[in-house]
Simulated scan of single mutants.
Amino acid sequence: MRKELTRITFRQLEVFRAVCEHLSYSRAAEAMALTQPAVSLQIKQLEELLGQPLFDYVGKKLHLTPAAEALLATCEQLLSQLQALDMRLSTLQGALQGTLQLAAESSAKYLTPHLFAAFRAQHPKVSLSLTVTNRAQLIRRLGDNRDDLTLMSQPPQDMALEFFPLLDNPIVAVAPAGHPLSHAAQLPLSALENYPLLSREPGSGTRKAVEEFLQQQRVHFKQGMELMSLEAQREGVLAGLGLALLPRHAVRGELGSGQLLELPVEGLPFKRSWCLLYPRQKRLSPVAEAFYRFCQQERLNLQRQLA
């Protein structure tokens, strides 16, 4: 190994990772409470040690060079190992300590804080770093090994994963108060076809589940509107733009207040499960392993508490 590489510091790697994340020296400096010249100096010193440039400016945008891509992969491994060492040393001292890097599908974000709070009641020194995104992005993050654990519905079948079903995810049809269908005692699913359906963006797990269900039931909506989040869907229904098939957890407050109504549709709710998972070849940190086991052991209690 070249002697120059042994002179790389963890501080330089942290600054480098921040620049990669923000693709901006100024935003990286702001995130790390440094000056922009200080960030530039750290990157320059890294480039001198590596003997290769790390970033290119193309069209006024910062781009990673092949050397930066290679360094970033190593950087993530080194910092992850250092964090794992910190956790293991804390465990040896008798207290679980560290940060759980958890990624969750958008539809699960309403439950994730409650789930972690139950775990943290037993391990108060553990903190949470939560990333919420859609299914497509979660699959990319799984492939890049970005997180400790992932909470999502319908685990991808083409990946080697360890997982178990954690919580039910009931999907219901919702309408605004006063909707023409609100007084029906029972409705066939086809009765919804004459109204616009508000759906999520491509890549959403909820959209994938809804499309598969409608296809199985041979129901086709004549009108539709694509919205980019569960919140936008919910507000769209409240505004009278159409109906939506949504996780019941995502509209619990509005159903309770009467702003939204759960329509009594035959075959609904249909259920999917949120699964807790990680790549099979991944070695879990002590915090991640403890959280995974906690969720397995407390699954029935959690289902009752979060139903």
Rank of each mutant, 00 (worst) to 15 (best):
M1K: 09
R2M: 08
K3M: 07
E4F: 02
L5F: 13
F10M: 10
F10L: 15
L13C: 00
F16I: 03
V19N: 02
H22N: 10
S26D: 09
A28M: 01
E30H: 09
E30T: 14
A31M: 08
M32K: 04
A33V: 13
T35A: 06
Q36A: 05
P37R: 04
A38K: 00
A38Y: 00
Q42C: 04
L46N: 00
L50F: 12
V58S: 08
K60W: 11
L62Y: 10
E69D: 10
E69M: 13
L71C: 07
E76D: 14
Q77S: 11
L79R: 09
S80I: 08
Q81G: 14
Q81M: 13
Q81Y: 10
Q83W: 09
A84N: 11
L85N: 12
L85A: 12
M87Q: 15
M87F: 03
L89V: 14
L89I: 12
L89N: 09
Q93P: 01
A95Y: 07
A95K: 11
L96C: 06
L96D: 07
G98S: 04
T99P: 01
L100D: 05
L102W: 03
A103W: 03
A103P: 00
E105L: 13
L111A: 09
T112S: 10
F116T: 15
A118S: 14
A118M: 13
V126Q: 02
S129V: 06
L130K: 05
T133D: 13
Q137R: 13
L138V: 09
L142Q: 03
D147V: 12
D147F: 08
D147A: 15
D148F: 02
D148Q: 07
T150M: 05
T150W: 08
T150C: 12
S153E: 12
S153W: 00
P156F: 06
L161G: 02
E162P: 01
L166D: 04
L167A: 05
D168M: 07
D168W: 01
P170S: 09
P170A: 09
V172S: 03
A173H: 02
V174H: 01
A175F: 06
P176V: 07
A177P: 04
L181V: 06
S182K: 05
A185E: 13
A185N: 07
Q186L: 15
L187R: 02
L187E: 02
L187N: 00
A191M: 07
A191W: 03
A191I: 05
E193C: 12
P196Q: 06
L198C: 10
S199I: 13
P202T: 13
G203C: 10
G205E: 03
T206D: 12
T206L: 11
K208G: 10
Q216W: 05
R218W: 01
R218V: 07
V219C: 11
H220Q: 13
Q223E: 15
G224A: 07
M225F: 12
E226F: 06
L230C: 03
L230Q: 02
R234H: 02
L241V: 00
H249G: 00
A250Q: 02
E254D: 15
L255V: 10
Q259I: 04
Q259R: 15
Q259K: 11
L261Y: 09
E262K: 06
V265W: 01
F270Y: 14
R272E: 15
R272I: 05
Y278W: 03
R280D: 07
Q281V: 11
K282N: 02
R283E: 14
L284Q: 07
S285Q: 04
A290R: 09
F291P: 05
Y292I: 08
F294T: 07
E298T: 11
L300Q: 15
